[in-house]
Design a protein around this nucleic acid. Structure first.
Length: 203
DNA sequence: AAGATGATTACCT
DNA sequence: GGTAATCATCTTG
């Protein structure tokens, strides 16, 4: 079952948790990449010092976060890495969920080319271990870039999400990664991951 | 118009 | 464990 607007247009923490186990489908050319979401982080806007939209900050970049739920927010981090987020909750709140880890499901060969310019068989153990266990890594594997910023996941075209019924797992809640400047928000338990998954960035 | 910075990754010891 | 890479975006003047 494809996830529609009503799935995304809810409380951001709830969406971040419920995204675990869902699959992201990415089509281009003749390929259809599929990955299972195993790690997410919630960014809750106005009161969240870790969020790009903290205190209602509105810039050209973050405008999509204030838009309709179910759209992609993709931005360039550290000058090199595209990070994939999904806009959540009501319009104008500026909330989103960052995808931090996926388990490759279909077309792992194509993902491997996107990630390392090599077939999966040629990858060493370090590369296999670090295949898509991080926000920049999974974006690279799924070929998601800033060109995809603002796309609507609910139009079900070249990128969308699906529930394939996977649900027998436990969720771990922990602190978010890489927001050392965020004062009290550092301690918010806004990161969620599937217990035991090999594709979680930080355990 | 210039300077600082970052929701990270890869590679080295 | 440490740190370089690399640039769009944001802030400041």
């Amino acid at each position: 079952m494809k996830l529609d607007r009503s799935f995304f247009n809810r409380d951001t923490i709830m969406v971040a948790k419920e995204l675990l186990g869902k699959v992201i489908v990415r089509k281009y050319g003749s390929v259809e990449l599929v990955g299972r979401i195993v790690e997410t982080e919630a960014y809750t806007g106005y009161l969240d010092k870790g969020s790009h939209t903290y205190n209602g900050k509105r810039t050209n970049r973050t405008e999509v976060m204030y838009g309709e739920a179910g759209h992609l927010y993709v931005y360039l981090n550290y000058g090199m890495y595209n990070l994939t987020n999904i806009v959540t909750n009501e319009k104008n709140l500026g909330e989103a969920v960052l995808l931090r880890g996926i388990e490759p499901i279909s077309e792992i060969e194509e993902m491997s080319k996107n990630r390392f310019k090599k077939s999966y068989e040629e990858l060493n153990s370090y590369q296999r271990k670090n295949f898509s266990n991080g926000p920049g890594k999974l974006s690279m594997a799924m070929n998601i870039t800033r060109d995809d910023d603002g796309k609507d996941l609910c139009s079900f075209e070249d990128v969308y999400l699906r529930d394939d019924g996977y649900k027998n797992f436990s969720i771990v809640e922990s602190k978010r990664v890489g927001i050392d400047y965020a004062e009290e928000a550092i301690d918010f338990l806004y990161r969620f991951y599937i217990e035991g998954s090999d594709y979680v960035s930080v355990k």
